[in-house]
Design a protein around this nucleic acid. Sequence first.
DNA 1: ATATTAAAAGACCTTTTGGTCTTTTAATAT
DNA 2: ATATTAAAAGACCAAAAGGTCTTTTAATAT
Lengths: 144, 144
Amino acid sequence: MFNKETEYALRGLVYVRVQQILGHKPGIIEIATEIDAPLFYTGKILQRLVKMGFLMSSKGKGGGFYFDLLKPDLPLKTIVEAIEGGKAYSGCGFGLKQCNDDNPCPLHEQYAPIRASIDKLVTLNTVQSLALNYKNGEDILLKL
Amino acid sequence: MFNKETEYALRGLVYVRVQQILGHKPGIIEIATEIDAPLFYTGKILQRLVKMGFLMSSKGKGGGFYFDLLKPDLPLKTIVEAIEGGKAYSGCGFGLKQCNDDNPCPLHEQYAPIRASIDKLVTLNTVQSLALNYKNGEDILLKL
DNA sequence: ATATTAAAAGACCTTTTGGTCTTTTAATAT
DNA sequence: ATATTAAAAGACCAAAAGGTCTTTTAATAT
């Protein structure tokens, strides 16, 4: 569904948010270990997320990653588009630019509703909502 | 949804099948032009499909690509799996190996039905069924 | 037989994705 | 002040995806 970078970003963000709920500010080493992602790569990805304004960080002792609680919830779609580009999972199944409702490719009629479901999924779910589910013990994040 | 190679393969296969219905055996140049794909790359992909037994070809004058009509219809899933590998669109949205119904990641409940729809889509649709839709004027293939 | 046609084979290249590692900067605690 | 801690910056590398091009092989038509 998503590429590796997006996967690590989503897992990392949700992990940070869960920890924030628990009153903890995790660092790169903890995050990468807990979400089972490559250490340096995860660091680079989190850095990018900070630079893009999705996440906050502080240096030095007691430092780590956290969210600005004043900001609105972060839909997955925002992150995915920031990482994979705006056209992610919005294209035609056959790769045709001209494909649309009036001019459907052979898969269009069946694929369009699926694409719409995906769009809904990433639009409605936010890092915060997923973190709450996780915190409530409903879901796993990793490291079972 | 699919990667480029798969897209070109699907478009090419459907195009060949449509032409076969029309009593024509197209060559690489025609196919690549009509499906709007890179010439040499398309050639290489068709070659692979022939080697994998999904498609037939003949060399020399009057040569080109065609299907063995005795073989059963070719589900898209077969092609996608041959090109992208068996685990295409079967994984967890979060990239977790341990994710399943009993042990769901935060996205699992919502993503699982979407994944199932995709599986149904590629299982039920075949190169032949799509070619028929196209031939009936219901769909576009490309080159509008 | 040979010239022509068209696919097969395979070398090669570029871009993107995924990943590693070292150095620098900034914060905090002593 | 300075030692320590931890993120930021950025150089570097490997694999995969995507794509180009030339040469070889096989079929057909003359």
